[in-house]
């Protein structure tokens, strides 16, 4: 199934080589969780501070559904 993925800031480097678009579609297996998705993309857990599914904070064990929009931000804290 396809989901929409947006990786922000430093996380953009975990997108497939050559793909630098702010948004891209990715195929995942039914039953894939956020934890599985981060592993598939080789994103270390500590690099994903904000994870939203369709605008709501996601839990690591939350399963994805067809068409979900996932946004992931790194831990930005400076001011």
């Amino acid at each position: 199934m396809k989901i929409e993925l947006r990786l922000y800031a430093q996380l953009r480097s975990y997108q497939p080589v050559g793909d630098n678009a702010p948004l891209y579609l990715i195929d995942v297996d039914p039953g894939t969780t956020i934890h599985n998705l981060l592993s598939k993309l080789d994103i270390p857990r500590h690099m994903a501070m904000i994870i939203l599914i369709n605008g709501t904070r996601a839990r690591l064990n939350q399963q994805l559904k067809e068409g979900d929009c996932v946004a992931v931000f790194p831990p930005i804290a400076g001011g």
Binding site: Q10, H46, M49, P74, P75, I76, A77, G78
Partner: peptide, 9 residues
């Protein structure tokens, strides 16, 4: 946890 700041990045 650790995070990115002006000091680190």
């Amino acid at each position: 946890k650790s995070f990115f700041t002006a000091q680190t990045s």
